[in-house]
Amino acid sequence: MADYPTKLADLPKEERSVSSGHRLCTGCAAGTIARLVGKAVPDKPFMWVNATCCLEVATTIYPFAAWHVPWIHNAFENAAATASGVRSGLDMLMKKGRIPQRDIEVIAIGGDGGTYDIGIQAISGAIERGHDFVYICYDNEAYMNTGIQRSGATMHAAWTTTSPAGEAVPGKQEFKKPLLRIVAAHGLEYCATASCSYPLDFVRKVKRAVDVKGPAFVHVIQPCLRGWRFDTSESFQVARLAVESRFFPLYEVYNGYKYVLNYPNPMMSKVPIEDYLKQQGRLRHLFKPERKQEILDIIQAHVDKEWEKLLELAEFSEKSALY
C-alpha cells in the first residue's frame, strides 16, 4: 500500500511541476492543481503533456516556460494521443537500450473543453489501448481560455457567452455530461473525481493513478473566478461548496465498476445547492431580478438524483460478491 500524506505539511516543499513566474490569473486554482500533481509524485521522474488550455498559454509564452519537468504541448484535442506517443517512444528507447532504463511517468492534462468535448475521442482511444499514463482533467465548466463559452461540462442554467442568460433562454439548457462514468465504462483500473479544495484527497488520488500500470484518470473541479464570477479569494471556498452540496461528489472507480464514495459524508446533512449557486455571478439570473424557483428546483432535483445514483453504485459495490 502506498504511503499517502495525511497533512499538507507532509507534502514536499520542492516545486516539481509548474514554477513561479507563470501568468495564470490571481487566485486561479489551475496553478495549484498543477503544483499538487508535482508534489504527489516526489520520488518519480515524469513528463508533462499539456493540451491547449489556460494552463498551457499562461505558463509557456515563448521564450519563457514555467516548468521544472520535460513539458510538451501539441494541440487542443490530442493530449491523450500525444501522451500515447511519448509513452511508446520512451518504452521502446528503453527497451532498445538507447536511454537509461527507469520508471518515468507520463502525465497528460487538459481542461474540460479539451476533455469532455473535442478531446474525448483521443482519450477514449488512449485508454482503450492501455498506455501507461495518467490523464488529469481540470474542469472549470467552460472554454475559459477563449473567454467563457459553454462546454459539455457546463452546469445547467449557467451563463456563458454562448449560453447567455436571456429572457427566452435562461442560460445553458443541458446538464453536465457524466464524464467519470464515461471514462469508467472503459474498465480502466482507476479513475476518480477530486477537488482542489481537498488537496490531500487530490494528492492521494494522483499518487494512486501514477501507481497504476496502464491508464488512469483524475477529474478535478476547478472553479474559475473569471468565468464563474466570484472574487479572487474564493476559488477554494466555491470548490468546497461544489463537493458539500453534492454537486461534485468525490469518488473513485476501481476497474470500471467498484465505486467508492469519499466526500461528502452521506451522514452529514445536505448543503442546499442554492448555497453553492449563490456564490457565483454566472448564476445570478436565478436570484435577480427575481428568484427563479422552478430552475432552482430542477437543479436541486438533478443533483439529488445523481447523488442517489452514486450512493447506489457505491452501496452495490460494497455488497456485491463480484467486488
Binding site: 521522474p45 515524469f46 513528463m47 499539456n50 498551457e56 498559454v57 509557456t60 509564452i61 515563448y62 521564450p63 516556460a65 516548468w67 521544472h68 519537468v69 520535460p70 513539458w71 510538451i72 504541448h73 501539441n74 511519448v86 536511454i99 527507469r102 518515468i104
Partner: peptide, 12 residues
Amino acid sequence: LDVDAPIAQGLL
C-alpha cells in the same frame, strides 16, 4: 524530452 535535462516543446 529528457527527465535529466528538461525542456519545453510546443510553446505559445
